[in-house]
């Protein structure tokens, strides 16, 4: 089932590197793993004997656990590294740290770092495959994949069938701190590559300085004009330090202009959904009631994250040019 994958990539560093066909293939692969996740015993032996290490140079709960869960469900061994209490706290450089881990024979390094491009640098230094799990304000490719996967589900629900291969015709507004958001950068690229219309909504201080080359339909500071037309509203987390940097006057003003209030949510289209990468600031970018409503797909995003990350790990470790690793119960489904 995997033979159609468009070339085996060595790393997953940014959505910008991926072509539409590759995104579609990865999402299709994730469909198969979603089925595994739904089983009573959600585990396959596919990556037995392989080692996946999560290297988080920045705090995270959900992304790290999601990758570790994905690796374990593929029967890979997992290791985790975090900077506090590590050799880096003693002044070891990033390069020395990752080369040391590489020498232990790790197959995949899942890297999160506070500096944009750090996973790209790591990829130049190690033999292992590198997955970008969020680099500064640059990209968060697996988040974009799981978001696209979740939106495909929404389209499938609407049509009452299997998910379509892409997101053609879907209108999505990404609302909030686009300037500082790696989620927004990856999502804009992935959504548009899959045919969705992307709108950005933010105050000028939280919009990127330049949108030259961004594959979007529109950008502005007016949420109310768009609320009724979107199929999905993607709310970004507002980092509270933006206030002290003088980018916003107050949380209250932000919530009033850009928060998805219950009142605004009521004006959304029938069947339109709300996504959020988490963790949410309830009462700021999203009303508590909206976050708990049927429109919100936040827990679905988290659930899909595991299947998508299984697909990514599988894709990177698939023996190049060889037969696909045995995936019990997967091949028959794919051939149906």
């Amino acid at each position: 089932m995997t033979s159609a994958l468009v070339g085996v990539r060595r790393h997953l560093l940014s959505i910008a590197d991926l072509k539409r066909d590759e995104l579609i293939e990865l999402l299709a692969l994730a469909d198969s793993f979603a089925e595994v996740v739904d089983r009573p015993i959600p585990k396959v032996p596919t990556l037995r004997g392989r080692t996946v290490a999560t290297l988080f140079f920045e705090a995270s709960t959900r992304t790290r656990l999601s990758f570790e869960t994905a690796a374990k469900r593929l029967s890979a061994d997992t290791m985790s590294f975090s900077v506090s209490g590590s050799s880096m706290a003693k002044g070891e450089s990033l390069r020395d740290t990752v080369e040391t881990l590489d020498a232990m024979g790790i197959d995949v390094m899942v890297v999160r770092h506070h500096s944009a491009g750090a996973p790209h640098q790591v990829a130049r230094w190690v033999r292992a495959a590198v997955v970008n799990a969020g680099d500064g304000q640059h990209e968060h490719p697996t988040q974009a994949l799981l978001d696209c996967f979740t939106l495909r589900e929404v389209l499938a629900e609407r049509a009452g069938g299997r998910p379509p291969e892409d997101l053609c015709g879907l209108k999505v507004a990404i609302v909030g701190d686009v300037r500082h958001s790696r989620v927004a950068r990856s999502d804009v690229l992935a959504l548009s590559a899959l045919g969705a219309e992307v709108h950005l909504v933010a105050p000028a201080t939280l919009m990127p300085c330049s949108l030259e080359g961004w594959p979007i339909v529109g950008a502005g500071a007016e949420l109310d004009a768009l609320v009724g037309e979107m199929d999905a509203i993607y709310l970004l987390r507002l980092q509270l330090e933006r206030m002290s940097a003088g980018l916003l006057p107050s949380l209250r003003e932000y919530a009033t202009r850009f928060g998805l209030s219950t009142e605004r949510a009521m004006r959304m289209k029938e069947g339109a959904v709300v996504l959020h990468p988490g963790p949410m600031n309830r009462g700021v970018e999203i009303d508590a009631a909206v976050a708990s409503s049927e429109r919100a797909r936040v827990t679905r995003q988290v659930r899909n994250g595991v299947a998508v990350r299984m697909a990514v790990l599988f894709h990177l470790l698939e023996p190049a040019g060889g037969a696909p690793a045995p995936l019990e119960g997967l091949a028959d489904r794919a051939e149906r």
Binding site: H138, E139, H180, S210
Partner: peptide
């Protein structure tokens, strides 16, 4: 600060 910094998410 410009088109590239905005795309790359690198502070400009």
């Amino acid at each position: 600060e410009g088109a590239w910094s905005s795309r790359l998410g690198v502070p400009g």
